[in-house]
Design a protein around this nucleic acid. Sequence first.
DNA 1: TTATCAACAACAATCGATTGCGCAAACCAT
DNA 2: ATGGTTTGCGCAATCGATTGTTGTTGATAA
Lengths: 330, 330
Amino acid sequence: MSKVTIKDIAKYLDIHPSTVSRALRDHPDVGKALKASIVELSERLGYQPNVTAINLRKGRSGIIALIIPEVANYFFPNVIKAVEEIMHAEGYQLLILNSNDIYLREKQNAEICVRLGVDGILVSLCKESSELEHFKELISRGIPMVFFDKIKQDSDTCKVSIPGEQAAYDGISYLLNNNKNIKRIAGIFGDERLSITQDRLSGFRRALFDHGIKPGPGLIHFAYRSEDAEEVFKYLWAGKNRPEGLFIMSDEILQGVIKAAYELRLSLSRELKTISMSDGFLPNICQFKIPYVKTSGFDLGKKAAQLLMQQLKEQKILKGNFFIETPLVD
Amino acid sequence: MSKVTIKDIAKYLDIHPSTVSRALRDHPDVGKALKASIVELSERLGYQPNVTAINLRKGRSGIIALIIPEVANYFFPNVIKAVEEIMHAEGYQLLILNSNDIYLREKQNAEICVRLGVDGILVSLCKESSELEHFKELISRGIPMVFFDKIKQDSDTCKVSIPGEQAAYDGISYLLNNNKNIKRIAGIFGDERLSITQDRLSGFRRALFDHGIKPGPGLIHFAYRSEDAEEVFKYLWAGKNRPEGLFIMSDEILQGVIKAAYELRLSLSRELKTISMSDGFLPNICQFKIPYVKTSGFDLGKKAAQLLMQQLKEQKILKGNFFIETPLVD
DNA sequence: TTATCAACAACAATCGATTGCGCAAACCAT
DNA sequence: ATGGTTTGCGCAATCGATTGTTGTTGATAA
């Protein structure tokens, strides 16, 4: 019923707690007969070591924090899934902290990490975060961190991301190679402040340039939420410079565009050649056949978690840029 | 840089750690002058109490576990969001344990809870769980638990759920009241082993009965995953007893039906009158106007978390059935 | 002047597990 | 038989914060 401790076992056998501890950890200093009876008794009593006490002794908390700007969209549930798998396999607890895309909450979350003394942190920045001031405390304490997906490019940290520039380039190339005669390519992107937006935009531009296409006026747009994307797309489609091809940066944008297309009774496969970057869910359930460059939250979370584990095991801070694969799915 | 402890502060002021502790907790036994200088110093040094040590002393862990069968579908991200909000506000950490709809993993997750000595648990059962044997240990230890959504009806525990019977009844009534002349109503349900499936099925039956409709042969189907629902719907639509109305039990089923409808070039609003139970996301992004009975993961998570907090604060185990509201959205 | 009572602060034990050190008994070899 | 090594186990400190008990001041009242 109540919790069994090492002391209980020691008292029962009339030996010292330290001997029990050693026996259970299979230390050679304990005789085999005594060791056997200790193990037998502790199993019989259902002994479970007190994790809090172990952590206190070891000077750690056993907690890994995952700071993300959002939990309930396409991307992050898959990140959570991947990270959770790895962390539990390694005996860590995963603490999920949601910033809700608010800088202040992200800062508070960083403070929670300090207070709890977490052993490592995975961070995806929120839209409002343009610097890492609020993580300085954690960094100076030498706590292993991995920034992933929504990162700050020019920071001297450990970063995992989607190779957005190249992925966007590949997407556009695919679109143009399969539709030789289209020229007017539009692009709808997310929040300009995000590094991932800048990456993808620059890949988009490079691809058009390499195919000898000048991005026409009014063909590049930005939308913050899926509702904005819906409006933006309607505006784009109603304009005089109606595009023949469309690049969509993310699932959020895609969601809005699909809704708009339904309302406009427009096919995103035939009347407008579309290429998206996506985790795959929306292209799979929508009416159109939309090819996409796969941006897997699961893969990204897995890679980030592995990099964090490596730092924890090797006891040294790792820095640099890491990337995941982005296959083209049709 | 490295962590500041109470001992550091005590040594610096050449006083005893216990005095520092009392001063920081505003105990009257410490003089105001000394207290002020202790507080000032501790703030200057950026002192943060060690949560692990406090938990050890208090004999608790500060952890609340959330055991769920899945993280990456429609429902649970919203549950996570709600629970996370409440738990962090109350100073608890949220530990998310994913069972992946596998009984063995659910059992292992329960064992993790024992090992970590969590202070409270929120559980949504997986499909394979027909009994609560694996939670007996936790229950007998008197650990506050709240079962939510996928629950075991006839268990003497604290349960929060969607009033599925009534919600299904309301959905069907709405469908029939708005489409006076339809008679052949089909229903596609989830896994038969789940209590939520049985609830909704029985509400479906009662509503038909009350409207003087006999459920025709071959109009009730079960599907485990969205792909199954897709197949089932195609089969249903191709059959000789093609339905005029359709009840869909969940978002997972709805996803499959929408995909099938796209392939069949069939409107779920005009050619087939559809009513669904849903969190709202899919009805919002699909081409059809599908009315639904709202089953909010956020509301459910919030209610469950509140019930758990109540037990923790009042230090007593609560039992009984609780429900959330299920408005009809059109 | 002495008794009394605050006020204040130190001591030490506690939560549970771990570990360096030391000590005794048993063993081996010369 | 004696010196030296191995085996097996207990003691006590440690991690950081908390708290009951004790002890020392100083001030006030009798």
